[in-house]
Write a protein that binds this DNA or RNA. Sequence first.
DNA 1: ATATAAATTTATCGCGCGTAAAGTTTTTTG
DNA 2: CAAAAAACTTTACGCGCGATAAATTTATAT
Lengths: 365, 365
Amino acid sequence: MAFQCVQNACLIGHRSSKMGKCMAERKLKNMEEFAAASGISRPTVSKYFNDPASVRKTTRQRIEKALEEFDYRPNIFAMNQNRKLTKNVGIVVPYLADPFFTEIARRMERCCLEAGFRPTLYSSHGQQHLENEILDSLRSLKPAGVLLAPLGRASDKRVIEKFCEDVPTVLFDSNIDGIGEAFVGSDNFSFVSQTVDYLTRTGESPCFFEMSTPANPNANKRRTAYLQTMERFGLEPHVVKVDGEGWAFEQIGRDGALRMLKAGGFPTSTVLCSNDRLAIGLLSACYDHGLRVGRGEGCALRVASHDDHPFSQFTCPSLTTAAHDYDSVSSHAFKTLNTLIEAGGRFDQREETLFAAHLVLRSSA
Amino acid sequence: MAFQCVQNACLIGHRSSKMGKCMAERKLKNMEEFAAASGISRPTVSKYFNDPASVRKTTRQRIEKALEEFDYRPNIFAMNQNRKLTKNVGIVVPYLADPFFTEIARRMERCCLEAGFRPTLYSSHGQQHLENEILDSLRSLKPAGVLLAPLGRASDKRVIEKFCEDVPTVLFDSNIDGIGEAFVGSDNFSFVSQTVDYLTRTGESPCFFEMSTPANPNANKRRTAYLQTMERFGLEPHVVKVDGEGWAFEQIGRDGALRMLKAGGFPTSTVLCSNDRLAIGLLSACYDHGLRVGRGEGCALRVASHDDHPFSQFTCPSLTTAAHDYDSVSSHAFKTLNTLIEAGGRFDQREETLFAAHLVLRSSA
DNA sequence: ATATAAATTTATCGCGCGTAAAGTTTTTTG
DNA sequence: CAAAAAACTTTACGCGCGATAAATTTATAT
């Protein structure tokens, strides 16, 4: 109790000392008051907050001067209540604990903020019911648009389709044919052809290491690309599938690789992993098994992969991988959404944009 | 154009086929209509949505029956406009690309949802101006409460203090003395004393590896704990500081370790890292330098650390570390916030709760 | 300068719900 | 069973802003 008094006294002290600095900064409680204080009518002020470029330059300057002078921010709930289109944007990723999605989401967030939108980030945590709930709850936010990376195999496609009918949505990372007005992602063929090509030029061509029931359609595209590329080269493909469900890819990769190694090893001396997280698990298995990975003399296995996961430069050895064009994917996804919003939520034709990978050579292959 | 037509036709087909399944599910546009449909007055319905337990059981059942029968959800903007206390909860972390925070945030999110709150996740991305903007924008959401892990050293403490005066806030992970009504975190002394004790019992006692200007006060507490524990054992401490600013801990750890190794190595054959992310960088440096890490015969260095970062079981070798009690920290932080909200936003005395670590023995030490 | 277009003001309504007061019904208590 | 308490209904108002129409001012073009 005594403590509390001292604290309050202290805080009051702070407050009054701050008052001195910002005498002019009166708190205005609504737009009416702010309009009066700035000498502009309320509807015009309202128009300004909706879109600053929609008012005359001199008016804009007067409002912005008042904005510096007074402490006023429009009530966000009242704003969105009657507005046909809010400035809210939802960003939904399937699994935020994967730093790949964190990176993409961060960039998208930035794009939104710079364009004057209010982004909100959601993660489905790998679970269908959460994805559905997120979309449901997103709907009630009346968002101007949504950037959605679906779970993939685990998604309830009917729910997503219905959502995309109601809310302007750009899919990214994981495509669902025909759903959403646009898709922005990476060109899986470009990933795989580059890694297979490189590995084949510099040593034995790779087997393909993947989950037997991948979470995500990209995995299927990558396997197909592997098979095609090997065929083009006139080489015999080997696909190694490991068991495991869900999004704990490292664990699945590790467990699967350990089983392989105990059962006699991989069919080839080069392994191409479907994605970096599987590769991280595989590398950890190799390490524990005493198998030296890399392209040097003492190395028994080469390992390469796809994604350029933020941690892949710190694996042992560092991971040779095909990198997403993070910046292009995120900024183009946002641009597409912005265009879609301005076009009223519909495109004449569904847009699909894929960005090529670039090979990142490190030590593992 | 032709494509668009075909698509629309298809979608219309879907819609009408669905209609058959849910004839009864009429869309009600506001609470007035829903109240009429459920046979309860609107103020009572409003009370129900505010707190289902606040209405009589029979009334609750009638409302919930209607809720199943009709498609109605209260308008979230109108709801929050006049409500003194919303059900919004902000969760703010300093750096979401760190899976440690992703894990904590996910658990907190779950707690919030289960208790009927609407959590929203924000990341400061390591930048002060973003942290400030988040708090500013959070303020206008009139949240019932906020779970805040501040940046630490980079935080503008005045801004955070002011925020905590206005909004019921529980700090977590990173404490700021006297700010916020409560803090929930881990007991850094428990982390370090356990690792130092273990390492000392099983081999040479460790030097302490850390950043020279840590992002976060926990680092300082851990250094102090290291020094105290070594002194208690009557051993000479060695603190190794590496340069680097910001949140790219792995890179900083790696670069620092490489410099150390080239300059002749570490002062002891055992290294205790301030946190797992630094250790991940250090392990990668050791690997590249050809230094075998672990507690076996052929090993030149033992490495241990703190946090039990989600990736620390996949490092090479897997990392011996002191683990946060993720579940306890997140659930207790939420419980504290809930209590705080119910207490009207103030505690008589600031609460500080620290959870002990538990040692996770893996291969690196 | 005059005509025309563009921007702003004035006035007024409505959004969907929270909230409060007063009256009515239902439940609980002794 | 009556009295008190609790829950509900009715009525009414207000929140802060979006949207619109008509009147007025200001800018642009001829």
